[in-house]
Design a protein around this nucleic acid. Structure first.
Length: 727
DNA sequence: CGAAAGGCTCTTTTT
DNA sequence: GAGCCTTTCG
């Protein structure tokens, strides 16, 4: 198969330029993923490079998987030996292989965010610091930033410049000690430790450098200093380093990504070739033009000449809703119309928002109208309590030094090991210089001779230990699923879950996790657990986004990067939301918000809706947000307002309600005794005159939202109960 | 020892 | 409006 056929001239050049450093600046929809896949295929088939010598780094596991599939299709066979994955996954693999050399246990666990918070809390506690004064999150962010800059505790200590940093450096030291004791690494460690390994062990570096003759990094605009350094290390020998990215889509500075790496690539590699992919194959002309107007306002950027041969297409729809419920209603109603038109399917549509919290109102509307949707993120699967609990058991079995997991499940379900008992164990472990579980084992073995606890507590501890030991031996002999089921039964977790609130749903989640575990049945007993835990630690939600289901996708703007949809609804396009209030005062952050907006618009192939709400409840109270400044940067001729139903009244509140508010079909709602719709004037026995803002089915009744003219403001009633009169 | 209830602070984005 | 922590009672 001809690898080059079907590529445009710029793409061809990008694929065929395989020697020396090369920077590919690829605008949205310019076939970037395609170029990387073709480049790998080209290296292997045309240049005869062994896949073993190729390293390709992607931003998400999903991107890696897609890349693998594309390469498979291009070559017509699977590729053995190719290294293709995220920075984190790739580093984890290398660290496990080299573990002994750098003095870490190769069974190390990867701690996620909440594990990290846990451990930070313990670090603060050890140091006698008040978590109110030094919030674990803030300290954690500072530590993470240090790690992204490759500063180990001692190096960080040397550069502290404020009191807070001084405190941070002390916590950092303690935190690293606890990580080591738990035999765990956090996300940032994976990168930092790898870079340090290469620095301290030139022979190891030389080995990998010789292996990776060709290095490719995708989404280069989102690399942080540690990742950048790693890229340079790996590509240091042959210098066949190909980086691909788009500065305008850099949206991860808060994860310490630094735009300079891509902007200054030519400085770091003076002999670098720079190629531009500027033809867009994704979006209509209008969408591309609108996006370009939005991004052009940024100062810190190189202008690009994006163009497309696609048709001009429809104008963007800008709509104002009254509040977030109304906004959600507008979206559902609009999707419903699109689907009814026969031109679109639900699966063609995506709703994108700045913050996860915004998904709730949208989700509720979709549920209420019985419309299929899939939510990416929010309470992410692997962050659910029941999933984390079961994983904690598995992690403890795999790595008995994992204190975070132990403390998570030692009394879940309750088994008579309360705070007091546990505190004694912690104290005992500290005195003996043991990590928690080994300390427990010793207590159990010695009958708890020198620990001030009652017989009941001691017995509970001993029972716990013997149970975990049973699991450990099962892990050595049996299938992972067998171990999994044994845990659920023996610990009583199954019953515990089913009897809890939302038990059914939580049990479903556990079964879903069990399915994942089942995928590891063909491996050696202990090995399957190791692999399972590794992969579970590194997956993100986008990774599991299945294309099949015909449902509307609900997703954050950040997660949407790299994806595309025929129809995109961006909601909450308001000052304070997008741009986010936390970013409004800092010009650099504001530019990032603008890029986020740009990313959102450029996800769309054919239709874009930009929706903002007049009023929005945030953290309990409600705010009045003006439309986002970004909207003002789109030329009016590219925008149309939604077709409105004739104004039902002159009320300023009612006219704010966007178009098409004839209710979508109500699934299980009884006919209301009094029929009301948005815009109707009503009178309430107690609150006086007002205007109906919304009227929607709710549990066999209708919930009616009314804006009163007097001091009463906005209130909601059940239609059947409220003393209302239509005027 | 554990469950339940009340009071506190916040919520940006995630590998 | 919710999770998290502390307090209180059984």
């Amino acid at each position: 198969m001809d690898i080059i056929a079907g590529l445009n001239p710029a793409q061809k050049e990008a694929v065929q330029t395989i020697e020396g450093p090369i920077l590919i600046v690829a605008g949205p929809g310019s076939g970037k993923t395609r170029v990387i896949a073709h480049r790998v295929a080209y290296l292997i088939t045309v240049c005869g490079t062994s896949p073993y010598h190729v390293l390709a780094v992607t931003f998400t596991n999903k991107a890696a998987r897609e890349m693998k599939e594309r390469i498979y299709h291009l070559l017509g066979r699977t590729v053995e030996g190719l290294t293709l994955g995220t920075f984190h996954a790739t580093c984890a693999r290398m660290l496990r292989i080299e573990a002994e050399r750098i003095g870490i246990d190769r069974n190390f666990l990867i701690y996620d965010d909440s594990d990290q918070i846990n451990l930070l809390k313990r670090s603060l506690e050890h140091l006698g610091l008040d978590p109110k004064q030094y919030p674990p999150r803030g300290v954690g962010a500072a530590i993470s930033s240090a790690k992204a800059r490759l500063l180990a505790p001692a190096e960080y200590r040397a550069v502290v410049g404020s009191y807070f940093e001084e405190i941070t450096s002390r916590v950092y030291e303690r935190y690293q000690e606890l990580l080591r004791e738990s035999n765990a690494l956090d996300f940032d460690d994976l990168i930092m430790r790898t870079v340090h390994m290469f620095r301290n062990h030139p022979d190891i570096l030389a080995r990998y450098q010789s292996r990776y003759v060709h290095v490719m990094i995708d989404e280069f605009q989102d690399t942080n200093f540690a990742q950048y350094t790693l890229s340079r290390q790996l590509g240091g020998k042959y210098r066949n380093i190909c980086v691909v990215g788009d500065p305008d889509q850099s949206i991860y500075s808060w994860r310490h990504a630094d735009l300079r790496h891509i902007l200054d690539f030519e400085k770091d590699f003076p002999d670098a070739r720079v190629l531009y992919l500027e033809q867009n194959y994704r979006s209509t002309g209008v969408i591309l033009k609108a996006a370009d107007h939005v991004i052009s306002v940024n100062q810190e950027r190189k202008p690009k000449g994006l163009w497309t041969e696609n048709k001009a297409g429809e104008a963007l729809v800008v709509a104002e809703a009254y509040n977030e419920q109304d906004e959600a209603y507008f979206v559902v109603n609009e999707v419903e119309k699109l689907v009814r038109s026969g031109k679109w399917r639900a699966g063609d549509c995506a709703v994108m928002y700045r913050t996860n919290a915004q998904s709730r109102a949208i989700e509720e509307a979709f549920i209420r109208y019985g419309f299929p949707y899939r939510l990416v993120g929010a309470t992410r699967f692997y962050e659910r309590r029941e999933v984390k609990d079961v994983l904690a058991y598995l992690r403890l079995i795999h790595n008995p030094h994992d204190g975070v997991s132990l403390s998570r499940i030692i009394n879940v379900p309750v088994r008579g090991i309360g705070q007091r008992t546990f505190a004694e164990v912690v104290k005992y472990a500290g005195e003996k210089g043991l990590s928690l579980y080994p300390a427990l084992k010793r207590i159990a073995a010695e009958g708890g001779a020198d620990i001030p606890l009652g017989t009941r507590s001691k017995q509970a501890l001993a029972d716990f230990v013997s149970m975990v030991e049973e699991f450990a031996s099962l892990n050595r002999e049996a299938d992972l699923v067998v171990l999994f089921d044994a845990i659920l039964e023996k610990t009583g977790y199954k019953r515990f879950t089913l009897e809890s609130v939302d038990g059914e749903e939580r049990w479903e989640n556990i079964l879903e996790l069990r399915n994942v575990a089942d995928g590891y049945r063909d491996l050696e007993p202990g090995e399957s657990l190791a692999r399972f835990l590794e992969e579970v630690a590194l997956v993100s939600d986008v990774d599991n986004l299945e294309e099949k289901a015909d449902a509307v996708t609900l997703i954050t703007l950040h997660q949407a990067k790299g994806l595309e949809f025929p129809v995109v609804f961006m909601v909450g396009v308001e000052e304070g939301i997008l741009p986010h209030s936390k970013s409004i005062t800092d010009p650099a952050q504001l530019e990032e918000e603008r890029r986020l907006c740009y990313v959102g618009i450029t996800r769309a192939k054919e239709k874009v809706y930009l929706v903002h709400a007049f009023r929005r409840s945030l953290m309990g109270s409600s705010a009045l947000n003006p439309a986002s400044r970004f909207l003002a940067d789109i030329p009016p001729e590219l925008i149309k307002s939604p077709s409105r139903t004739p104004a039902a009244s002159e009320s300023p509140v009612a006219t704010r309600i966007p178009a098409g508010h004839e209710p979508v079909k109500e699934p299980a709602a009884a006919a209301p005794s009094l029929s009301l719709k948005a815009g109707d004037h009503v009178s309430h026995a107690r609150f006086g005159e007002g205007v109906v803002v919304n009227c929607a089915a709710s549990g066999g009744d209708h919930q009616v939202t009314i804006a009163f003219k007097g001091d009463a403001g906005i209130k909601r009633f059940l239609l059947s109960l409220a003393p209302l009169m239509k005027l």
